[in-house]
Design a protein around this nucleic acid. Structure first.
Lengths: 406, 406
DNA sequence: CCGAATTTGTTCTTAATTTGAACAAATGTG
DNA sequence: CACATTTGTTCAAATTAAGAACAAATTCGG
């Protein structure tokens, strides 16, 4: 039951039903392809004439194409329809603290080419670097298809209205406009998003499960920072000023260490990669001090994971504690939002087999109902490049979105 | 950007635009009444012929009525339209630990009659008591109008599909079906909802601000329990199994007291009425022990509030600490959901002038951006009966809801 | 091999609603 | 009293859904 906003409503017009049905049909093709007109008519409970008309429009505008006919037990062989994805390309950019990833992919998120370089932290210089590399990448792969836009993912809060990065502590950015600068420099439209939301968008729009893709879930990223992308009813929850999702800053101990954000005892201070490394090194979490030690030792989270698996007890104990705190944080999400499922991303998912039993135990204790305690938690390996696929989704997904009315 | 659910979509038909526009018009009348057809046409950017047609339908089905004409500077005097509310009545029921409130109101939430009685905790007996009182109440006020349904608010989790109360610790209920039992016993349709969500619905649908009514907010109730109703984009967030909103069970101290839910250090164990009373009595929060002491002493939260205002330092200190913890909890909500505003309900809002500065200070420290820190917090006095008005909204609001498509 | 049955895809007609123009009613002003 | 203005109603045209009819393309059984 949704309330109409009488200051900002979208009236229905004569073309509204057609737009709605065309989008429904397009999504059905995308999730059930290859599919015939007759099958579409059955699934939509409309006449085949209606489907023919809508399909004609989509063929004309290039969203779908006709493939082959397939054998049928009787009657005329149906002509199968597909969504055009292979020749519609996206430049996906993932900016992280140390490395920037640049991928050319198609509308499915299938990678075509991947480059990586050390992050240029100065915004103008980063834009210049991207503006040099992107045309070159596209030229190299010009035969594959045409670029439809650039998706850019950053580790910070993004204002979707202005495209400005409000705050990205890992990069030292505050109120920075890279979206419009990159659009001007490359001539492509650029969409920008924060990392957990981008990962959530990838799961929703480019997941492998088609029609069973999740529409009510939380994507938690445990990495340099800890944050979440929240999706309710098939739509990302951004919040009034675009700053929702900061589950990393839920305080779980009033006497805990001081977090990067300035508060004490944040979930992030217990569960981020830096927190796990601090614990392994045997001292309290301190962003600046721990970073310094790590730079000197060259130790990474992947090292600790490997050591834990090899029997290093200190490493195992460090991970165990991370799992316990992560369990508390996920229980908070389960109790406050009650998602259908939770995705967990970040380097530590490589040790999911070790983390999951601990997390499960904490959740069993803290979730308010047994059904809530059974919320599926699905790790996503870093090797599936969730942020880059999220960047792709930023560009590809809008053509499939439900029309807005009322 | 919302994803279409291809397993459960609602196709548009020929009548879809008309239904959408009728609902938009109805909401415009409700929020701008009295209003003329011409004015509606201007606000909707449609021809006056269209409005005449939609208004005819709404006049015929009894949703609106014509009032008087009003003076205009020139031309024909316009005929003003109103939503019918005064003669459309609702039985609103608020079941609490100690008292049950029963109100007859109109569709605006304007009270006509109010009764209260000691809560009969046994579900069948409660239904029988209500089934006896409701017809009597309606008979007494039969001349006012006709009853359109019953709204029932309980302090626990409700499954909206089956209408069952999953868990209401204050009442000792688990998996209880009072909705269908009450519907059978009275012959009216019954809608049931948990308390924080009902309060949120009241704010959204029956608030005093008409078109400026909130659509992205959180309603926090601080009472016997602590919970929240979350509203995103004009729609309540219930969660996958209808258990979202349990912000009272965010753990803020791992060594904190054991909560009613079994976990340690929950926000509720620091901020509920029982927590404040425990603190005032000088011992650690313990639901059973503290209840016992309170039953013996007859002390209530209202007593402590009055004592704090009268200079009782122990009472003031108890409230101060409650405010500090509530600040932490509200900062969690601000960081994780970034609502446009937060409503706070419960008895302690009587002391809002004392609580607010403390809460503000904690939030200023913990919110991640200064804009988020400035999130308006609006206390709602218990004397405006938010739960009862929420019960009214359960019945009245659906006729104004946006149609569902795609 | 052919007629019948079945399925897919296309075309066409009808019905419902939006869109916009024209008209009717009801005012105020000079 | 004529004209201008505003509100409200009626009507015709345009667009789209809905459904029927038809065309094309098959398989099967006699």
């Amino acid at each position: 039951m949704r309330k109409i906003n009488t200051h900002s409503f979208i009236r229905a017009t004569r073309s509204t039903p057609r737009e709605i049905n065309r989008q429904i049909l397009l999504n059905l093709v995308r999730e059930h392809q290859p599919i015939s007109r007759a099958d579409l008519a059955r699934r939509m409970s409309v006449g085949r004439g209606m489907v023919t008309s809508l399909v004609s429009e989509l063929l004309t505008d290039g969203s779908i194409y006709e493939g082959t006919t397939v054998d049928a037990p009787r009657g005329r062989k149906p002509m199968m329809l597909y969504v055009r994805t292979h020749d519609r390309l996206v430049i996906a950019v993932d900016v992280r603290f140390s490395k920037t990833y640049l991928m050319l992919s198609d509308f499915n998120g299938t990678p075509i080419a991947l480059e990586t370089f050390d992050t240029v932290v100065e915004p103008e210089a980063l834009v210049a670097t991207l503006a040099r590399r992107i045309p070159r990448l596209l030229k190299t792969h010009r035969a594959v298809g045409k670029c439809n836009g650039i998706g850019l993912v950053v580790p910070g809060m993004v204002d979707q209205l202005t495209g400005r990065v409000l705050n990205a502590p890992q990069l030292g950015w505050r109120d920075v406009d890279v979206r419009n600068a990159l659009a001007d420099a490359t001539g492509f439209s650029v969409q920008i998003e924060n990392a957990p939301i981008a990962c959530a968008l990838a799961q929703m729009w480019l997941g492998q499960r088609g029609g069973d893709a999740p529409r009510d879930f939380v994507y938690v990223t445990v990495s340099d920072g800890v944050g979440a992308g929240v999706v309710v009813n098939g739509e990302v929850v951004r919040g009034h000023n675009n700053t929702a999702g900061e589950f990393g800053h839920v305080p779980i101990d009033p006497l805990g260490p001081t977090c990067l954000c300035g508060s004490r005892g944040c979930l992030e201070a217990y569960t981020s990669n830096l927190a796990t490394l601090s614990r392994y090194l045997g001292h309290e979490f301190s962003p600046t001090e721990t970073r310094h030690l790590l730079q000197e030792s060259g130790l990474t989270i992947t090292d600790v994971l490997a050591r834990a698996r090899s029997g290093d007890r200190r490493a195992a104990a460090a991970l165990q504690e991370t799992a316990e705190h992560l369990g508390v944080g996920l229980a908070v999400i389960i109790n406050t939002l009650n998602p259908a499922q939770i995705f967990v991303g970040g380097e530590i998912t490589e040790a999911w087999d070790q983390l999951a039993p601990v997390i499960r135990e904490i959740i069993a204790k803290r979730a308010l109902t047994s059904l809530a305690a059974a919320t599926p938690m699905i790790p996503e390996p870093a090797s599936s490049y969730p942020r880059l696929r999220g960047a792709t989704a930023l560009v590809a997904a809008p053509i499939f979105a439900a029309p807005q009315v009322a």
